[in-house]
Write a protein that binds this DNA or RNA. Structure first.
Lengths: 247, 247
DNA sequence: ACGACCGTTCGACATTGTCGAACGCTCAGC
DNA sequence: GCTGAGCGTTCGACAATGTCGAACGGTCGT
């Protein structure tokens, strides 16, 4: 399939060097006619793998090809790598632990460890949670494992439903390296989450704890630093496991 | 270019879902004949954009397409984003600051701030440094912005020239989140570097300081934590700038 | 005003990509 | 142990597409 090989060569060229090339340069480098090169680039633009600068006419890699790597990690691999660290986190924090990744524009819970006590709990594994109203979801949004949903549904009076507020909240997550959700999905409940990084540092999931707000936060709704530390340690450990697997 | 559109559709499918799909599933989903689908997949395998599991026969995204995004960041953008933080880092640390990214299998210095004193110094901007024997380079290797060079050249008696030792060193960089080089490129000189992350947390560069080993390290060749902290703070700030620019 | 060089378009036609049929292999069910 | 289903793979006829030279309009430098 000659044309697919040619298209791949163009993408590799754009991935190297300065990242921006003119049609003539590409055609010359690959020894193709300009018309041929233009036809390939037009198709690559159409599928979003290439973008063209309006002013200079030069081409660069498009978002669609750059995002191919996003969340491509196997759910089962994420889960199997996480299990070792999820139980200790539940034990240390005394709260329920969930691991999530992005699927269908939501946070998919791939593993759930019950809070280590006798209370009745339901298994969330397999459920899809809203990104903007969960700690797991905010972490995934903050590191652009997903785009915010078109509509920000309000689950409680504390749910962030303004895009500006959400952007601000995500900035804080990026700054801190972890995120929270305080009575934004369920009244009386809070959660803390941190990013799980895979190959090359790309965020492929998140791990978090959740429980009664009075146990996770102080009286000014700030999460206890000790719990934040536990979550981050677990996230680092899972990330290290994932990185080691790919090494 | 119908076949390029079809190849792109296959890549997007593999990027979604579980990440691993059989030929029949792909053919059925895209309403293509199995022979057609097979021809496209064969070509994508040939260019490295797709890999096939030997045992199950299933297909997944290949390293070549996942790496298209690596180091695609414009050098000028990295540089312009870094400048604001490089000067303060030089001031605070009292050492020379360099920012680097991967080019041609080496660490390209995209920005260099002189040590703030009266000593004679030469501008390194534009030079290519070895990955395995520099702090910048080790950070880039640790986060897989590059592959190790085929041959590990010895610059001093302290240069790491064993692949196993290098792998161990890179594990430590990942664990710590920063890296050092102590008399491995130049006798009497040491360096400390930390990763600069771009879109989605992907490592696109590194920022570091370098200077006389007796100023950067204690008598047991351990870097001063205060300097490590300064470098990491600067790396975070540059990363935040890059993230913000893409937001 | 002109020439050089850019990206873009078009149509003839040669070449390639498509797809149905057939194959060998593996595995589950009986 | 045998059989059938379903997998990925290969092949060749041929229809459809991709290729490329020529020409175009636009921009920029002289």
């Amino acid at each position: 399939m000659q044309s697919i090989e040619r298209a791949a060569a163009i993408l590799r060229m754009l991935a190297g060097g300065t990242g921006r090339l003119g049609l003539g340069e590409i055609a010359a480098s690959l020894d193709l006619a300009k018309g041929t090169t233009h036809g390939i680039l037009r198709t690559l633009r159409h599928v979003g793998f290439v973008e063209q600068d309006r002013v200079s006419g030069r081409y660069q890699l498009g978002a669609a090809v750059l995002h191919l790597g996003d969340s491509h990690l196997d759910v089962n691999e994420l889960r199997s790598r996480s299990i070792n660290w999820a139980d200790p986190l539940a034990a240390r924090s005394g709260e329920a632990v969930r691991i999530g990744t992005v699927r269908q524009g939501r946070a998919l819970v791939v593993h759930h460890v019950f809070r280590p006590d006798d209370t009745f709990q339901t298994l969330d594994t397999g459920t899809l949670l809203p990104l903007h109203a969960t700690a797991l979801g905010k972490v995934l949004l903050a590191y652009r494992a997903a785009e915010p949903p078109a509509e920000l549904e309000a689950f409680t009076r504390r749910t962030v439903v303004s895009r500006r507020e959400l952007a601000t909240a995500l900035d804080r997550v990026r700054t801190a390296g972890w995120g929270t959700e305080i009575e934004e999905l369920t009244l009386g409940e809070a959660a803390i989450a941190a990013p799980i990084r895979g190959y090359g540092g790309l965020v492929v999931g998140a791990i978090g704890i959740s429980g009664p707000v009075e146990r996770l936060c102080d009286t000014r709704y700030r999460p206890h630093p000790r719990l934040v530390g536990h979550v981050r340690d677990a996230a680092r450990a899972v990330s290290a496991d994932l990185g080691a697997a790919r090494h």
